[in-house]
Write a protein that binds this DNA or RNA. Structure first.
Lengths: 227, 227
DNA sequence: TCATTATTTAATTATTTAATGGAATAATAA
DNA sequence: TTATTATTCCATTAAATAATTAAATAATGA
């Protein structure tokens, strides 16, 4: 009878721990981060995360068994996606906690930004007021598929790996504001560095499109301008 | 250079995974749950969680290295507590996610309640309106220390293990509302079961004092009435 | 049908982790 | 000082996990 209760309680913790186990691997966290940008096939995921396909598949299986992701089979392809909004919320809380408590993360990012001279970033208020004035260009430096899935209003898509080739298309009269996947994503910082090296006035905006949405701000979807 | 970036990204995920690892063990989740009710010494924790002291100490060390708990030494005693409000928030998000996604948990709890005939629980609105009318007694069936740390306004402390001995002090004219540590805590359900067996009209309220506080509702602290 | 492709599964190996019991530490009391 | 108590540390063992390689599935197109 009392055993009954202890057994029940243990089961509860067992179930909660399944989610903990799922996010106890850096690799799986990376996969979740990728998937929080949008659905992908196994091969794409493996490539983006620099894992073997078999390994990625196994990690995805683990994530699926914890109900953090779902998959759907289309012909030969399995497409994986986050299982729900709550997963995104959970990841955000995790990152917040990590940012607050695990000083090492802030330290790491701070170090990176510092050694690359892109320490300051723009606040949301500044971004909004400057885009209203119109003398700025906001660029989304994530892969174009992520841009299509949702981007800041007025932002144009310039994936980081295409930025150098497209420098001539950017106006030096405008200040450039680059953003990517949020606080701990490094793409925008790299973009700013490249831009500054090439004589542009460039700033980093360190929120993700999810953060932006979370503040009830409008998001554009689809093609937009991708010059 | 590109290595630099990958290395940095790996570090980030490594750090996030430290928190994941901390909550990947059912035992550690149980410890966190205990500590979310208030600070405790190692021995108390070990006893409440049914672990050897050495084992509890090691788990606590793991939680501390993930910065989820903090400890403080007073003489021979080490007192552990949650590291911050955010940890509580994080645990709540975890439980929410688990509740939504891991159907097994709901199933388990549902089964338990069903086989013990205490399926329905009272909503917050009902609780508030009934206490206003005054023909109800709200009992807090957690250990008395947890009651002292904060309880529902007007609730009296009747720890579950003392309930049977105190039945005579409860009025059969009043409906009894029992609550404990929230949704997946079983104390209140047990209390209701006991009360119903003894001819009381009893209901379960399935929120924790933290849930209650999270809705900006007042919380009483200290002795209150503990009959 | 056969070959190709995307994915999953299985088997292996190296590594990490959990629990245990006993020893070490360090504060306090006798 | 010695004994006691609370806690931590250490070594051992068993179990779980991650990455790798090769093999198995299963859908598609030639």
């Amino acid at each position: 009878m009392n055993n009954d209760i202890r057994h029940y309680q243990n089961e509860i913790y067992e179930q909660l721990a399944r989610i903990g186990k799922a996010i106890s691997s850096p690799r799986r966290l990376e996969l979740l981060e990728l998937l929080s940008q949008g659905p992908r096939t196994v091969e794409t995921i493996a490539e983006e995360a620099n894992l073997s396909v078999a390994n990625a598949s196994q990690h995805l299986k683990a994530l699926r068994s914890a109900r953090l992701v779902e998959s759907e089979k289309n012909g030969v392809y399995s497409t994986y996606r986050l299982a729900s909004e709550e997963v995104l919320q959970f990841l955000a809380t995790l990152k917040e906690l990590a940012g607050k408590r695990v000083a090492e993360i802030d330290q790491l990012f701070h170090n990176y930004l510092e050694t690359h001279g892109v320490l300051e970033s723009m606040t949301r208020e500044e971004l909004i007021s400057r885009t209203k004035k119109g003398n700025v260009t906001v660029i989304d430096v994530r892969p174009v598929e992520e841009y299509r899935a949702g981007h800041l209003p007025g932002a144009i898509s310039v994936p980081l790996n295409e930025l150098e080739a497209n420098l001539s298309k950017l106006s030096k009269d405008h200040e450039i504001i680059a953003y990517c996947r949020g606080q701990y994503c490094i793409l925008a910082a790299q973009a700013v560095e490249l831009l500054q090296r090439n004589g542009f006035k460039a700033y980093r905006f360190d929120e993700s499109i999810q953060d932006w949405e979370a503040h009830s701000l409008a998001v554009e979807k689809g093609e937009g301008r991708t010059e």
